[in-house]
Simulated assay, not measured.
Amino acid sequence: MTRTIPLPAFQDNYIWLLAGADDACVVVDPGDAAPVLEAAARGLRPVAVLLTHHHADHVGGVEAVLARFPVPCYGPDDPRIPAAAIRVGDGDRVDVPALGLGFDVIAVPGHTRSHIAFHGGGALFCGDTLFSLGCGRLFEGTPAQMLASLDRLAALPGDTRVCCAHEYTEANGRFARAAEPENAARDERLAEVAARRARGEPSLPSTLAGERACNPFLRVDAPGVLAGLAARLGQAPGDRAEAFAALRAWKDGFAG
């Protein structure tokens, strides 16, 4: 049985560990080496590193982690990824024998053009593509690309643990309420999140089933989301891509 461990970093990042029974662990997106080295000092043993995209808050600590633990490191085929990483792409599989696990690599362009996600051990490491109740900003990709990426992730098993890279759930929830005012599952999720955050606990991981029920960016076909968009735009979106683009633009300017 594996366990997911979020290590807080910077203001709101999480570096994720997926650990096995003997404390061997995969490290995902070590933007800062210090939390990983501190976890290792407590007994966790990195056996591989996975990188989802090139942004500094995801790769800035890679060299220091690998200097202490010279383990295989995997990342997207992008010159902005640290040179030590083995390049992987859509459809590849990353095996981690020390955990007895393999991870499927899924191309998820949108936030960046070369962004990838890793799915294995019952967990999804999605970087800045999918957040709980939200999705990443479009820095390099198009709305159509991001929608296709989210559709691929949403098709994974519902009990998959969604290990997002930022603690954005409460802020995303405020927008989700504006985009789809009537959603009982979402309101229940936000009540749970508020209680967890009040205890100083992460809101993550969530589950894909929960995100499909609550996250407006996975619900561009839902009547409530479409009604909210129609009211905002003055007309119904022409198709799913137009609905998603309008939803993302609305979120970009949302100050609620």
Rank of each mutant, 00 (worst) to 15 (best):
I5G: 12
A155Q: 14
A231P: 03
R240L: 14
Q11C: 01
F254G: 10
D32C: 01
V96C: 04
A194F: 01
P76C: 07
G253W: 11
G121C: 01
A255P: 04
G89H: 07
E182N: 07
P237I: 12
P237C: 14
E170P: 07
L138I: 07
A198G: 13
G228S: 01
A41T: 05
D128R: 07
H166I: 02
G136K: 10
C163E: 04
P30G: 13
A48W: 07
R186P: 09
G75A: 05
V193C: 15
H166N: 10
L99H: 07
R189G: 00
F139G: 07
V162Q: 00
I106V: 14
G134L: 09
D221Q: 10
R152V: 15
K251R: 14
V59Q: 02
A236L: 11
A41R: 13
V27Y: 06
A185V: 09
P35R: 00
H55T: 11
P6F: 00
A165I: 00
A176L: 06
R161F: 09
A33G: 06
H54R: 14
E170M: 14
P35Q: 02
A21P: 11
L153P: 10
V28T: 12
L44S: 02
D77N: 12
H54T: 05
R87V: 05
G228H: 01
D77R: 05
A255T: 15
H115D: 15
A67E: 15
R93C: 05
H115S: 15
V105G: 03
G234L: 09
A24R: 11
F254L: 08
E192P: 00
G234H: 13
A191V: 15
A246K: 00
L44V: 05
L218V: 06
A178T: 07
T52Q: 03
E140A: 10
T112E: 14
T4E: 08
P70Y: 14
P6H: 03
V49P: 06
A241N: 13
D29M: 00
G141Y: 09
L147F: 06
R240V: 07
D239A: 12
L247G: 02
F254D: 13
G121F: 01
D12I: 14
D95I: 03
E180L: 08
E167D: 11
H115T: 15
E201V: 09
T2M: 04
E242K: 15
G121I: 03
L50M: 04
D92Y: 04
T52R: 00
L130V: 09
T4H: 05
D252W: 02
L229P: 01
P223R: 02
D104V: 12
G173E: 00
V162T: 04
W16Q: 06
P97V: 09
S114C: 12
T2C: 03
E211G: 09
A21M: 01
L133V: 07
E180M: 12
D95L: 02
L66G: 14
V94A: 02
E182C: 06
T129N: 10
A154C: 13
R177H: 00
A85C: 07
P109K: 13
D77C: 04
H111V: 14
A21I: 05
F69S: 05
G91M: 10
R199L: 15
T142K: 04
A165N: 05
R219D: 05
A24T: 08
T142D: 02
G238S: 13
